[in-house]
Design a protein around this nucleic acid. Structure first.
Lengths: 159, 159
DNA sequence: GCTTACACGTGACCC
DNA sequence: TGGGTCACGTGTAAG
């Protein structure tokens, strides 16, 4: 209901006049209209994707999808992983020189570190200096909401 | 290249038999075949995108595009930006005055660091990476029981 | 006139 | 029952 009309942003050629004739209000109009709505939606999504992928200049739908999937997302994912690992490693708190995801053989015992584990999440706490601690929370499934959970827990401390 | 046949990976229901009849080798076969190739390619790209976006379980094409564009890519981009800023500014857990210049320093401090102060003690929490936080407790008198208090508080979290 | 690419209508299918 | 989605064939604009 939002999009007033069709603004492909990439193909201003309006192709056809759209609705070549006034709807005769026939019996099978329902599905042709539904299909039209679906098409509109899909095209809009394509435009959004084009807007989201900056490395695209003028591509077809297929190429756009290819770029979005193969190139952009994967590259961003590896960059995120690398940056996370870097940030974790370069910081004064060195958790472990192991790889990020995967096996993660956490087989080292630190002096002043306590580790607690539940069914699906684990938290590590380590002293840094004498007035700071570093806390890391890892979830087995997706590590998406880990920070939120951690922040919420810390907030609940009412420090 | 290489796509042997059609493996939607997501919709094994082959809908129709595909090619309802043997090629009559008619006059206008060229474009129907070209269109079929285009469709194949596009579907393959959709499958690739589905494989690249992990947060999608079973969605339509439009929803998949929406998720890929609006959610995943943007989130990854902001995460990359934040991590880059973090890596640049706080390679270690150095507690420089967070409000140093007050200029554009709100890049990483936005909703990632909260500071609370009581009468005689202050605690700083800062995100390190995306699943770890660093907590520092400072007491005005420079008491030595700050770490013990902090550890006890964290322990009481029963994580 | 070729190829490439898109939107449309429509049959078929699934909740 | 019908709303929702998909793939197909085709007309049609560009390059």
């Amino acid at each position: 209901m939002a999009q007033s009309f069709e603004a492909p942003t990439q193909r201003p050629t309006k192709r056809r006049g759209r609705k070549p004739g006034p709807r005769p209000n026939g019996p099978t109009v329902s599905h042709v209209e539904a299909e039209r709505q679906r098409r509109e939606k899909l095209s809009c999504r394509f435009c959004d994707l084009r807007a989201a992928v900056p490395t695209v200049s003028r591509m077809d739908k297929a190429s756009l999808l290819a770029a979005a999937a193969a190139t952009y997302i994967i590259e961003l994912r590896v960059r995120v992983a690398r940056l996370e690992a870097d940030a974790r490693k370069a910081s004064a708190v060195r958790w472990e020189p192991s790889s990020d995801t995967g096996g993660a053989a956490s087989s080292h015992a630190a002096a002043s570190a306590l580790t607690a584990a539940r069914l699906d999440e684990a938290v590590e706490v380590r002293m840094v200096g004498c007035d700071a601690v570093a806390v890391r929370v890892t979830t087995t499934g997706g590590a998406r909401h880990a920070p939120a959970c951690l922040m919420g827990a810390l907030r609940s401390l009412d420090l």
